[in-house]
Structures are given as structure tokens and as C-alpha cells.
Computed example of a mutant assay.
Amino acid sequence: MRRYVLLLLSVALLTVGFLPGDAAAQNKKQKQRLRTMAEETAQEWEAQREKATSYAEEVGIPLRKEFEDGGVISL
């Protein structure tokens, strides 16, 4: 039984060793798309945050509040 487990582990390690590096990872096109999506999302988030902050300041909503129990909320 132990011999079969060692054989199985050996075959598994050899198989993983011969796989190309990009087999499990994203290719260049996918990586670039993810970077683009991240940048677009960050820009959108920043624009929405700026809009919310401006609105809060206009109507007098506090941007940050600390409670007696130590809790904090922030816009």
C-alpha cells in the first residue's frame, strides 16, 4: 500500500513538473484585460466617491463620525 502511495505521488510530481508555466496562469491578454478592468474600476470608484463627498458637504452630512463605544463610520 505504501509503495502505491509513493508511486502515485512520484507520478503526480513529475506530471506537474513537466507542465508549462502558463498552463494554470492567465495569459498576457487576460492579464492586460484584468489590469484595464482594475484601472477603470478605480477611476469609477474615485469619481463616485468625489460625487458623494461633494453632496455630503453641500447638505451638511458629516464625512466621519466616532461613537462613544469606539465605533467609527466614514463616507
Rank of each mutant, 00 (worst) to 15 (best):
M1E: 05
M1W: 03
R2D: 14
R3L: 02
R3V: 06
Y4G: 03
Y4W: 10
Y4A: 12
Y4E: 10
L6P: 04
L6Y: 08
L6M: 04
L7P: 01
L7A: 07
L8P: 06
L8S: 10
L8G: 04
L9V: 07
L9A: 13
L9R: 07
L9S: 08
S10D: 14
S10I: 03
S10T: 10
V11S: 00
V11K: 00
A12Q: 10
A12N: 05
A12H: 05
L13R: 05
L13N: 07
L14E: 05
L14I: 09
T15N: 00
T15P: 04
T15Y: 07
T15D: 03
T15M: 02
T15K: 00
F18S: 06
L19K: 09
L19D: 03
G21N: 14
G21E: 11
D22H: 04
D22A: 06
A24I: 14
A25G: 09
Q26M: 09
Q26D: 12
Q26R: 11
N27L: 01
N27K: 05
N27F: 01
K28V: 14
K28Q: 09
K28W: 08
K28S: 07
K29I: 12
K29P: 00
K29N: 05
K29W: 01
Q30H: 02
Q30E: 15
Q30I: 07
K31E: 13
K31I: 11
K31M: 12
Q32L: 15
Q32C: 08
R33K: 11
R33C: 00
L34M: 12
R35G: 06
T36K: 15
T36S: 14
M37V: 14
M37L: 15
M37G: 02
M37D: 15
E39L: 11
E39G: 00
E40V: 05
T41H: 13
T41F: 12
A42P: 00
A42Q: 12
A42N: 11
A42K: 13
A42F: 04
Q43S: 10
E44P: 00
E44Y: 07
E44Q: 15
W45A: 14
W45G: 00
E46F: 11
E46Y: 08
E46D: 10
A47I: 05
A47E: 14
Q48G: 10
Q48Y: 04
Q48N: 15
R49C: 02
R49W: 06
R49G: 04
T53V: 14
T53Y: 09
T53F: 10
S54K: 12
Y55E: 07
Y55G: 01
A56R: 13
E57P: 00
E58K: 15
V59W: 02
G60A: 04
G60T: 07
G60L: 08
G60F: 09
G60Q: 07
I61N: 05
I61R: 03
P62S: 09
P62T: 09
L63N: 08
L63S: 01
L63I: 06
L63E: 01
L63D: 02
R64F: 07
R64E: 15
K65I: 02
K65Y: 13
E66F: 09
E66G: 05
E66I: 11
E66S: 14
F67I: 04
F67Q: 03
E68Q: 08
E68M: 06
D69H: 09
G70T: 07
G70Q: 05
G70Y: 03
G70N: 07
G71N: 06
V72R: 05
V72G: 04
V72T: 12
I73W: 11
I73E: 10
I73K: 09
S74V: 13
L75P: 06
L75H: 10
